[in-house]
Design a protein around this nucleic acid. Sequence first.
DNA 1: GTGAAAGCGCTAACAT
DNA 2: ATGTTAGCGCTTTCAC
Lengths: 331, 331
Amino acid sequence: MADVAREAGVSPALVSLAFRDAYGVSATTRTRILETARRMGYQPNRVASRLASKSDDTLGVFLLDLHNEVFADMFDGMRDSARESGRELVLTVGSIGGELDRPALDSLVRARVGAVVAGGLLLPDAELAAYRGRLALVSVARIVPGFDAVASDNVLGATLAVRHLVGLGHGRILHLATPPTDGYGGRREGYLKAMADAGLEPWVLTCDYARQAAFDLVMPLLADGADHPGGGRPTAIFTHNDQTALGVLDAVHANRLRVPEDISVLGYDNTSATKPPGIDLTTVDLHAYDLGRRAAEIAVMRSEDPAGEPIVETFTPSLVVRASTAPPPQV
Amino acid sequence: MADVAREAGVSPALVSLAFRDAYGVSATTRTRILETARRMGYQPNRVASRLASKSDDTLGVFLLDLHNEVFADMFDGMRDSARESGRELVLTVGSIGGELDRPALDSLVRARVGAVVAGGLLLPDAELAAYRGRLALVSVARIVPGFDAVASDNVLGATLAVRHLVGLGHGRILHLATPPTDGYGGRREGYLKAMADAGLEPWVLTCDYARQAAFDLVMPLLADGADHPGGGRPTAIFTHNDQTALGVLDAVHANRLRVPEDISVLGYDNTSATKPPGIDLTTVDLHAYDLGRRAAEIAVMRSEDPAGEPIVETFTPSLVVRASTAPPPQV
DNA sequence: GTGAAAGCGCTAACAT
DNA sequence: ATGTTAGCGCTTTCAC
C-alpha cells in the first residue's frame, strides 16, 4: 500500500480511503489512486485490514456436506445475498458424521468472522450453546435455541408426504429418520403425527445422511421372505432426505423390485439429483436457495447488531409429486 | 491473549509459543497455559497471527461448482491431505460460466494465502498468467503453463471412451465438448484422434458444464425426422463430464428413446450421481479424490518453496463400464 | 481534501 | 525457560 501511495504521490491513509470509497476523497484523487494500484497489480491485504478494523464484514459459512446438493443450493442463495451486500464469504465444510462440526466452527471463531451462516449443523443444542457470545450463528433449516435461524416447517413437510402416501392407499409406510439428537426431529415428528391421524401403525428406522447407509439399512427389509414387524414389507418408504431416498432406490433395484409398481419412495429436499427421468423422485421441496439467501441477510443484520433478540423465521415446504409414488400393489 | 497470559501468570509471548507448541516451553507451563485458555474460552486470533507471521500456512481452495460432485470428491482429497499437514483451508467457489473465477482468485490474493489448490479453473491461460508471482496456484485436472498442476490424461480418457464405443460397433458417435478456450481440450483431442484412428467421421458439439445446457443442445438432435449432418441421429453420445451426460439422458428420455437400446451414453468423471440403478452410466473415472489429495500436497510444498520449477504430474484415468452403453440398434 | 500518528492482536528476534 | 521489544499492513482518529 505504501508503494502505491508513493507512486500516486499521496499518503497511505488516502489509499486506504480510496479503496473503500469512503467519504473524504476527491473523485480525481480516487481514480488516480485506483488506476496506479491497478497498474501495479496491488490487491489490498485483507488480513491486515481485518485486523485493523474491528468491524468484521466477512461472513463465515458452514456446510455439512458437499456431496449433498441441497447445500449447494443453500450456498447459491447465500452467495447471491452476500454479493448484493458486498460481503466476502469464507466457507468451511463439515462431515456427515458431525465430527467436523467443531473444528469447522472453531476455525470460524479463530478467523473472527462477523457472523456465520450454518447449513446442516449436527452438533447438539447444548454443545452449540458454548458458542454463544463468541460466534454469531444463523442456523439454516434447524432451530437452535439462543441463535438466529431460518427454518423450514419440517412437521408440515413430513405431514404433506405422509398424507400423499396415505391418499394413494398406502398403509405400511416406513420412515427413515435422522438420529433423534440431531435437531432435525421435525420430520420424524410430522411423520408420527400424520400416521397417527390416519390411524396407521408407525414404523421408523434411524439412518444417517449418507446414501450408502440407507442402502445398507433397507436392503435386508426388501429381501423376499424377510420377517417384518407387523408382517409384509413396506409398500412405501419416506426418507428424511434425498440422498437416503437414492440409497433406498439402489436397494429396491438391487432386489429386482420396481418403483413405483412394487414400492413407492418419497424423499426430502428436492435436490436436482431427484429430477432425472430414471429417478423421478417424489420429494418435499425445502426451498434451500431461499433459506440460504434469507439466512445470509440475517447474518448481515446480526453482524451489524451483535446483541438483539434471536430472529427465527420459518419457511413453508411444498410437495413435489413425481413418478416414484403410486398406489400400492394389489389395491 | 494478554488476558490468558495474565491469568496464567506468564508473558503473552509464551502463550503464543504454547499454542503453536513451539520449541522452548516447558511441558508444565504449556499445559497450564492451554488449560487456562480453554477455561476462558480463548481461541487464538488467526487474523492477527497471520499478519504477524509472514509465513502463510493456510491453503486456499477454488472449486468451480458445488453442484458437480466431482468437486466434492476433489475437496475430500484436499481436506484429508490438509488435515494431515495441519493446514487450514479457505474455500472459494466459482461458477459454471467462469465469470466468478477472477473474483474468487482475487479474494484469495487479498487473503494472502500461501498457495491455492484450484479445481475447475475456467480462465484462459493468458489471464491466469497475470497471477504469476502473486498467487501460487496448483491446478487440478488442467495444465496451466507456469503453474503447478495435477492433471489427468484426458486424451487417454477420451480414447478409452471412444474405443469402447467403437468396439461395441458404434459409428455415429457425437461428442459434447467443452468450449475450446477452457484448457480442458484433451478430451476433445482424444476423441478426434480416436475417431480418426477408427476411420470414423467426427461430430463435435460445444457445450458448457451444466446439465440443462446439454439437454437443450441434444433435445432437437434426437427428435424424429431431424436433419443430421451425415444422416441419421447419433447411436452414441460421449460427453465431457457426467453432468452433461445426465442432461443427455434427460433428453433421451424426453424423446421416448431408451438407453442403451436406442442410444448409448458415456460420461466423464465417475461421480456418484452416475451410479444409481436408474442411471447406471458408463463413464471415465478421473480419480478426483486422488487428484485433490496430491494437489494439496504439492500446494504445501509450494508454499514452503515459492520459487522452484513448476511441478506437473499426470494421473491415468480408467473406464468404468456400466449399463448405459451397448451395441447400436440393428447391428 | 489530505497527512501524521497510534494502534489492532499477534509473532519473532533478541535479551535475560 | 521465560520476558521484552519491535514490527506485520492496514484503519482510524485527529490535525492541518
